[in-house]
Design a protein around this nucleic acid. Structure first.
Lengths: 235, 235
DNA sequence: GTCCCTTTGTGAACCGATGCACAAAGTGAG
DNA sequence: CTCACTTTGTGCATCGGTTCACAAAGGGAC
């Protein structure tokens, strides 16, 4: 099989690479704003906070878009990465659960700026339904299936309480959605083929606490507490 | 070197394992609430959404806390994981940036429940300073160093606009903090020894969009758009 | 005690990701 | 044209993490 030059290699970009592409994209956008026409892998890698060899290998998975001796054309690379990530099309997102977090997400500018359009806000609480947030009317969760179908929602953000998340996920999946961003602190079970990404604020803090404790131990020369189970157990 | 039985092996738990411990902890807490005394690796793994061999290997890094033929004692394991993660002590957290996200974080219950105490809210906007949120008075960013020192803040959550994040990070690090949870969409540069964890909502959506596009391509039998650079370039 | 059943803890093979280091490819000067 | 210089793209060694598969260890029946 013959490949045209500068055609992406195989369909099959490593997951780790995909996770970094948005990072490169952000760095490139900053450079484009500052008027840079081309950038070397060294400079772009520094801006994105990664190793330059890794950056080159990542980009090589998309195709051969650099020029040896020169670097990468900023605008062209922005276009290629955007296209690969699917940002050249418009994605309708629904946010389910309009508590503190849901509200913050609805108002978060970073969504809109990247081809993501918040198409609906849904909640079960009649107290909240009808509110206007970020220019949108909060609708009742009963409308979930209708809203998804009629507005072409393909990504759902779950910001519900933990207890409701699985139930909502089931309905969302049944309505044909296959991409979910979950903020609820539960492990969702979904059928094969449905992509879930999880953001868990408390887990992030716990990981930090682990390392922080390590650093403190190192200062004081060892763990302060005994390893053994305390006599009076009362958790 | 002789080791006491049920003593943790070496100091050096894989990063991937540390990231999963909070997950196990959450599953275990749920089981403790439902009154379960012991649990097998198979059941706990299912509850946490991981492979059982991986769970056993993870736990084996903490020590030999299971009983063959029986499983793990739920309460005992909760205690051991909590201790390893440093959750048996109290962590003072400061949130910098009290916009939509900062507010949501301040009100987020998942923090308090796990030994994390929000000790301060800080912002640069005089409009916001003085507000009462989640029982706390919003203080001016000028107080940053004082607050960190006097209240023993060891973890800082950055929820500022992107433009301010690096500047705040520098001050926070100078004040002796070595653990930062960053929500601002920038790559922070900090000295060796400072731990940063980054949560980026828009990156998560972009990763979902990538996979969603893949799924759509698979349906329609290939990418809908041409690979080549469009003639009229205007991004 | 012996036997059988359950479940842990881990050696070893495997897999994907990282980073070095360099050949290949391009630019620009003369 | 040739030469010197820059920077990409990638082969290869390495590393960390995952998974399989099983020996070792404990419990309970008798």
């Amino acid at each position: 099989m013959i490949r045209r030059p500068s055609q992406p290699r195989e369909r099959g970009i490593p997951e780790a690479t995909v996770a970094r592409l948005p990072l490169y994209l952000r760095a490139l956008n900053g450079m484009a704003e500052r008027g840079l026409a081309t950038v070397s892998s060294e400079d772009l890698a520094a801006a994105a906070g990664v190793n330059s060899a890794k950056l080159r290998k990542d980009l090589s998975h998309l195709g051969s878009y650099g020029t040896r001796g020169v670097g990468y054309d900023v605008e062209y690379l922005i276009y290629q990465i955007s296209r690969e990530l699917g940002l050249t099309q418009d994605w309708a997102v629904a946010i389910v659960g309009v508590g503190n977090l849901g509200r913050a997400l609805a108002n978060y500018g970073g969504f809109v700026s990247r081809g993501f359009r918040v198409a609906a806000l849904l909640d079960a609480d009649p107290e909240v339904v009808g509110d206007h947030i970020a220019g949108l009317n909060v609708e009742h969760i009963d409308e979930l299936e209708t809203v998804i179908r009629l507005r072409g929602v393909s990504i759902v953000v779950l910001a519900t309480p933990a207890a409701a998340a699985q139930q909502v996920a089931d309905r969302v999946v049944a309505a044909g959605v296959t991409s979910i961003l979950n903020f609820a602190p539960v492990v969702l079970s979904v059928p094969e083929g449905v992509d879930i990404r999880k953001v868990d604020l408390s887990i992030e803090l716990q990981i930090l606490a682990f390392h922080e404790q390590r650093k403190m131990d190192r200062m004081t020369g060892g763990p302060a507490m005994a390893d053994e189970w305390p006599e009076a157990v009362d958790l």
